[in-house]
Structures are given as structure tokens and as C-alpha cells.
Design a protein around this nucleic acid. Structure first.
Lengths: 260, 260
DNA sequence: CGTTTTTTTGAGAGCCATCAAGCATTGTGG
DNA sequence: CCACAATGCTTGATGGCTCTCAAAAAAACG
């Protein structure tokens, strides 16, 4: 893992309460966990090792041999990335509260990407080896996992298409659209806007553009009256325009309440 | 599905034998099926609806409401693709014998991509609704599914990074590298080469380049002594060079015999 | 308030798309 | 077997999107 700032959260904000039991976790209402019963939750809790708190910029995971844990992001933002031979960084995906990462350690035995905190984060660390056994005992959990992986795959398909075919401003718009949708499901969008910790270089590394061009593309979105980012906050000026301009296909959720 | 050419294969090549039972399928030795026992296989067979034979260029799947089936590719090549608002086509992935597609119908209820045959193909059609029940009865099958999804995800990560960061010739090299590796696991590589049905426009739609530039990029790979495509056959001239040039990270398979 | 980091803006160069023409290959029908 | 059409591949020229380099402006930080 990383240097600095260890386990116990400094703040006493409600979501920051250390070592909340899975059964009582506020995330239980969202995403893949929604369909599980109490019994399954107690077992997931048994898998839980501990919660970890990390500061902005902390490298949560680095590529290399796995340590036998996987994680859920309890609060804050992070991103998965890999480094290309020439040293360039590609951000594969942004991680929002409730997202799971590292499931592959149970199957492939390696971290093949890095995970970095974009904001202060709290993680839940879970023991990977017993995952198989748990899935055997709780088929609903397994199906929830598969569901999550399939949704991820659909999103990855969209990202691939955008990087393959879209110009700069559209790439940026698509990214904004995807994040906004996911944040909406998490109930973090208010007044057509939300907290938004991405810097120019995060946009750049996620969209395959240079920081310079990200700047120009964002200026274009602002000039077109589509979206605006200032003071760490994103405002969607025209949702319809953004949807059309980005070419994003909204995800119809099958088993999800619209928001919290 | 598509027009023309129905069910029974015309040829009597061994791999073309119609309605082989899953237990006796030659694909049983590869990919996700490897770890399953006879009992599980009999149940998978019960899921099987029938085999379908389709000609080159057939549109196997088109985006829209799902019909309750998912598929495995029994023989031949195909590709998954989506169409962007501007009409451009993005190839998301090439499908090789043994690959599964359409698992999402059991969860999302829709085909959100198209599947097209690159060669004459034989498909196995399976009933999606009973998949959940089957996974409950055979945890090994579920874990195999998850394993497959996770491997897919890793490959999708690599593709995303290449589209985000690599120049034309590297994108092509990466695609060749990935396909070669997968074909090797399927035992279809001999003498540093293999059958290769991709046309220029498939390269173009997969890598986000124009057909013109694909042509130039392939010429560069040939000139550099890396790889050569002619008469529907790919020859890897220098595997080490190809690996280095493409930046591809070979996949260490955990539970796979090297080839058939 | 000075230092550092980030963002904006400008100029030139490069990769690649588009358009277009020539060449090779394939298939068809006479 | 050959003429012909159709398709796909190659190669050239031009233009546009985006990169790199660079410097100024703005914001964040201590």
C-alpha cells in the first residue's frame, strides 16, 4: 500500500465511522448489495478485514503480486490506471463510493493496475480466498458479482468506442456524462451539479488527450452552454445537449431505485 | 438473427458435426469449461437449445430486446461491435472459438451490441433464464464465468490503454499480439502464423484508424520485419519485436494447458 | 505575500482523416 | 479463356485535429 495516514479516520463525519458492520453500512442500499439478505450480509462481514483511511493522492494499490485482499470504496473518489511502456498513464476507470476493485486477485493472483485516491478515501478491505466458498453458500452474492462485472463491461465498451472514434470535446463530454449518471445513482447530484475532484491531467489521462487540449475542450463545452467546472464543482448547464453531444447511451438499470 | 443459411452445417468437417453434446465438445478442453465435472456438463447441455450455422458476414445479433438466449462460438471468427451516433462502427472485441457472448441478457435484458460473422461460424445457443438456477447448483460453473469475465476485463483494460495512448502502427501491433496469444491458447498457431480473416476495415474499426492508415501501418510492420499478412494468413516475423513494439503484456494463465 | 501548482493561451509540428487515383484480386458471364 | 465488373489494397496530396513546447495568467498554499 502506501505511506502516511493510517487506519482510523480523523473526522467524525457519519460516513467516516470506523468499522461499520456490513449489515449496517449505508452503501447497502446501492449497487450490487441491494438484493442480499441479512444472512449473506453477516457472511460478507465475516470476510471483512478492516477499514482503511487514506489521504488525497495516496497510491492505494500498485501493480504487482496480490496480498490476498480485495476492496470496496466506502467513501471518496479514486481511479484505476495502468502505465504504458513509454511511461504514459492511462486512467481506466474512476471509482466511486460502493465500487468494488481487486476481485481479480482471487483468480489471476496479481494486481495488474494501480489505484490512486482522488480525494481522502475510506476503504473496506476483504479477504479474497474465502470469496469462492462464500459464493458457494450464497448464490445471490455470486449473481450480484456477475451483474456488477457485466455492467462494468458495458461501460468499458462505451469508453472504448469513445476513445476509438470521438474528438476531444466529445470525449470529455462522454466522461462527464458517465460520471454524472453514476453519481446520480449514488444520490450525489444536486442542482444539476456535484463535487468534482478531477484535475486537467486526470481528464487527459482518462481520455487520451493532452492537458492542453483538455483545457480547450472544456472551454468549448462551457462556450456551448453544455457544462462548466469551477472550484472543484461540476455544473451541467444543459443535460439534453450534453447527452446528444457526447453520444452517451444512458444505462437502464434493472434493479435499482433511482437514487437514495 | 439473420437471413439465409440455416441450421445444419453443409460441411462434414469434424468440428462441424451438428448438435454435439456439451460433454463431448472439443471445446471442453479449453477456456472456462476446463474445470467443470461431468455432472455440470450434463446440466450445461440441458441449457443448450441447438447449434446454428451461419455464413460469412451474417449478422448474428443485432442490438435490441433480448430473446432469452446467450451463445458460445463453436467454430469460426466473429466480432462484437456498436455503432456511434455518427454512424461509425467500433469493433469492441473479436470472438474466437470457445468464446461466450450475450451473458448480459440474463441481467440487463438487452443486446447492446451487434455480433457479426467474420468467417462461416457454428454457434451454440443456450437458454439464459435457467442460468441463475444452474449457477446455484454448480458453483464451479459460476466461478468459471466470473473468471472469464475478469479475464475479459483485463483485456478490455489493455485495449482502452492502447486506443488512448498508442499511435497507429502500435495499435495494429497490439491487436495482432492479442489475437495471436488467444489463438495460441486455442492451438491454432502453427509456424508462427495462423489463418487470419480480418480485412483492412476490420482493423480500422477495431483500432479507431482509417482504412488508409491501417494500410500504411501494416506496411510499416512489414518493413520493420515484425509481422506480415497476405492471402488471409498472418505471419509473425519477430515475436520479440512484436511484443516490445506493441507494449502488450502477455497474460499469465493460471489454470490452462498451453494448447490442445 | 512569495512560492508552487494549475490553468489558460499561443505557435509550430506531426499524426492521421479525407479525397482521389491507380493497381491487384476475385468472380461472372460470354 | 478472356472481357468486364466489383471489391479490396496501395499510394499520393491536402487539410484538420491534437501534440509539444513555451510563457503568461490564475489559483492554491503556507
Amino acid at each position: 500500500m502506501d505511506q502516511s495516514s493510517d487506519d482510523a479516520p480523523r473526522s467524525s463525519a457519519p460516513w467516516c465511522r470506523p468499522n461499520v458492520a456490513c449489515q449496517e453500512c449505508s452503501l447497502r442500499q446501492v449497487r450490487l448489495f441491494q438484493q442480499l439478505d441479512d444472512d449473506a450480509f453477516r457472511s460478507v462481514n465475516a470476510l471483512r478485514d478492516r477499514q482503511l483511511s487514506r489521504p488525497v493522492g495516496a497510491r492505494l494499490i500498485q501493480p504487482g503480486p496480490a496480498d490476498g485482499f480485495f476492496y470496496t470504496l466506502f467513501s471518496g473518489w479514486a481511479f484505476r490506471s495502468i502505465r504504458l511502456p513509454d511511461g504514459a498513464r492511462q486512467i481506466l476507470e474512476f471509482l466511486l463510493p460502493g465500487d468494488v476493485f481487486g476481485l481479480q486477485v482471487a483468480f489471476l493472483g496479481d494486481w495488474d493496475y494501480a489505484v490512486t485516491a482522488l480525494t481522502p478515501v475510506v476503504l473496506c478491505r476483504l479477504r479474497a480466498p474465502s470469496l469462492g466458498e462464500l459464493c458457494t453458500r450464497f448464490p445471490a452474492l455470486t449473481l450480484a458479482l456477475i451483474h456488477t462485472l457485466i455492467e462494468d463491461k458495458r461501460r468499458a465498451d462505451g469508453r472504448l468506442a469513445v476513445l476509438g472514434r470521438a474528438l476531444g470535446p466529445q470525449r470529455i463530454a462522454f466522461l462527464l456524462m458517465e460520471l454524472t449518471e453514476r453519481l446520480e445513482f449514488a444520490g450525489e447530484v444536486r442542482d444539476n451539479g456535484c463535487e468534482f475532484p478531477l484535475r486537467r491531467r486526470h481528464f487527459a489521462d482518462a481520455t487520451g488527450l493532452s492537458g492542453t487540449h483538455v483545457s480547450r475542450s472544456l472551454a468549448e463545452l462551457r462556450a456551448k452552454g453544455i457544462a462548466h467546472i469551477a472550484d472543484g464543482r461540476l455544473t451541467i448547464l444543459d443535460r439534453t445537449l450534453l447527452t446528444r453531444f457526447s453520444g452517451y447511451t444512458p444505462l437502464a438499470r434493472s434493479v435499482e431505485s433511482p437514487s437514495l
